[in-house]
């Protein structure tokens, strides 16, 4: 495993921890999109179907369990927790799951490396992960005051994607036969979706003002 891949996994882990920290300690999910969180839960469910059948490493299995567990835990907190759910911004979080899930599933049926069930689900998870952040970005745009933890959550997620691209470039040059068009293109699309957010995030940090995305 190279340093980019490891750092990417760690920033991904950080993003989840920041979000859980916010929800668990402040008992608030203000500014967090339930739609995005539900899509991530679906992404991990579809991608890690092989968790029991295909052992790669202890690291791999533990990380998969963490991402699966935390994504469902976050959804549970927002939907069911007596206090947390009160802060959920239902009026502004209006993105429809199906508009993202259905096209991704159809695309996975059409464009995949092998048309086996697990392979299609894996491809579906890549396509869906690429666009799963959209409801969250829309919600941020509609939110006047983005708190620090929410901003950091999205920042860490974006950093994770950027580091994965470095990882692919590194692996392409160091490993024989490492060519994965589907992973690369969906990963690139996903990273580009953060470009706008990053621009405003760094500006707010540089000028030391509160983060706000233009409508």
């Amino acid at each position: 495993m190279n340093i980019f891949r490891f750092s990417g996994d760690m920033t991904h882990l950080m993003s989840v921890l920041v979000l859980l920290l916010k929800i668990h300690t402040i008992k608030s999910c203000a500014g967090i999109s339930l739609k995005t969180q539900e899509l991530y839960a679906l992404v991990f469910l579809a991608r890690y179907l092989d968790i029991v059948t295909n052992f790669i490493s202890l690291y791999n299995t533990i990380m998969k369990l963490i991402f699966l567990g935390s994504s469902f835990m976050i959804v549970w907190y927002i939907r069911r927790h007596r206090i947390v759910r009160r802060s959920y911004d239902k009026e502004h979080d209006t993105f429809r799951h199906l508009f993202l899930v259905l096209p991704c599933f159809i695309l996975a049926l059409l464009i995949n490396e092998r048309s086996a069930f697990k392979e299609i689900m894996w491809t579906f998870s890549l396509y869906l992960e690429a666009v799963a952040i959209l409801p969250q970005l829309v919600l941020l745009q509609r939110t006047k005051n983005i708190d620090n933890l929410t901003g950091q959550y999205v920042f860490f997620l974006g950093a994770y994607r950027a580091l994965y691209i470095c990882n692919w470039i590194y692996r392409y040059f160091t490993e024989p036969h490492y060519v994965h068009w589907i992973t690369w293109i969906s990963g690139l699309v996903q990273t580009l979706l953060y470009a706008d957010f990053f621009y405003y995030y760094f500006n707010s940090w540089k000028n030391n003002v509160k983060l706000q995305l233009p409508a």
């Binding site: 495993m1 092989d50 295909n54 790669i56 791999n60 998969k64 991402f67 894996w122 994965y164 992973t183």
Partner: peptide, 10 residues
């Protein structure tokens, strides 16, 4: 332990 398919990624 890294498999050929890149499926060792999360």
């Amino acid at each position: 332990t890294e498999d050929q398919n890149g499926k060792d990624e999360l």
